[in-house]
């Protein structure tokens, strides 16, 4: 936070700008604000619509647009939320989602970090080709892997782990790794060479260089990776359905939410409310990691 404060001060220190200059500056910035506000408004409309409709009955949603509520509020109720929150075992499913998502975010991120470092800063034959294969793996449709992986899990070192958390952790780790390595390798590869050379001259080993230099300098990239891996796993329904299947004790929140709608699609209005409830955790993760997207984190660590 202090780093951000300093950066802000350097940018807009009022002591360096007399009042008149500040007005001019604000006016010159006006197009920036207008452009941003217009875009943010467009981006928010769908979510606002969903939010308002989450308080409306299916009949009102079907007969009038959600914006009519803005001028004549009527027929709003918490019924959809009651239906969502009234589901049995919702709390347990929520915890399951956390149990699934946290390790399934942590493990691939960590493995990706040192793998990416090896790709970025170590020399070995076949490096380019291995990396090529790795990037290609991002495009593999997960569906083609379900049966082979499921068979592997059914005799995983002698036990059947289908239905367990371990199965989803491993699956999500493998599915997340190619992109994770790709993103981090790119970031680490763009770090300046001099830093590492200086460290090696000082007698640092690659292990030290990785933990003391590469990792801290890659914090913004790692933070964004954590956010996205978290969101993907949190919102996943299919992988959990395939590898946890009918084991209700381990199913995630998404399974609860999907089953609000019956097999004919009736009950979709509950999804609006469910969407907002399920969104809270990924948003909190995003907001709490925001502080790592700050100018100077990498620069600061280099100086230190």
């Amino acid at each position: 936070m202090t780093v951000e404060g300093r950066a802000q001060d350097a940018k807009e220190d009022p002591n360096r700008n007399p009042a008149s200059k500040r007005v001019i500056k604000v006016l010159r910035r006006a197009p920036v604000h207008v452009a941003l506000f217009a875009l943010l408004f467009v981006w928010l409309i769908p979510t606002i619509g969903l939010f308002i409709n989450s308080f409306r009955s299916v009949d009102s949603i079907n007969s009038t647009g959600w914006w009519t509520v803005l001028t004549a509020p009527s027929g709003l109720s918490l019924d959809n939320y009651r239906q969502v929150l009234g589901q049995q075992d919702l709390g347990s499913k929520f915890l399951n989602s956390l149990y699934i998502t946290i390790p399934a975010t942590l493990i691939p991120t960590m493995i990706a970090a040192f793998t990416a470092y090896a790709f970025a800063w170590m020399k070995f034959p076949g490096r380019t080709w291995l990396f090529l294969i790795l990037v290609a793996l991002i495009v593999i449709p997960l569906q083609t892997t379900f049966i082979p992986i499921g068979r592997f899990f059914s005799n995983f070192f002698g036990t059947n782990i289908n239905g367990s958390f371990l199965a989803v952790w491993l699956a999500h780790t493998a599915y997340g790794l190619p992109f994770a390595i790709y993103l981090l390798r790119n970031f680490m590869g763009s770090l300046p060479r001099e830093i590492f050379e200086a460290a090696y001259i000082d007698g640092a080993s690659p292990v030290t260089a990785f933990f003391r230099l590469a990792l801290p300098m890659s914090v913004p990239a790692i933070a964004s990776l954590v956010i996205f891996q978290f969101v993907f796993v949190w919102n996943d329904l299919l992988v959990a359905l395939i590898f946890i299947g009918g084991n209700t004790d381990n199913q995630p929140l998404t399974q609860s939410l999907a089953s609000l709608v019956n097999s004919f699609g009736s009950g979709w209005q509950y999804l609006a409310a469910a969407g907002f409830i399920a969104m809270i955790v990924p948003l909190l993760v995003f907001l709490s990691l925001q502080r790592f997207f700050v100018r100077g984190i990498s620069a600061g660590s280099v100086k230190g």
Partner: peptide, 19 residues
């Protein structure tokens, strides 16, 4: 009890893996 519209996928998986 698990209710899912993807039962086809889930059962196909189960047929192949035995779970």
């Amino acid at each position: 009890y698990t209710g899912t519209r993807d039962i086809n996928a889930s059962l196909n998986q189960g047929i192949q893996t035995g779970t």
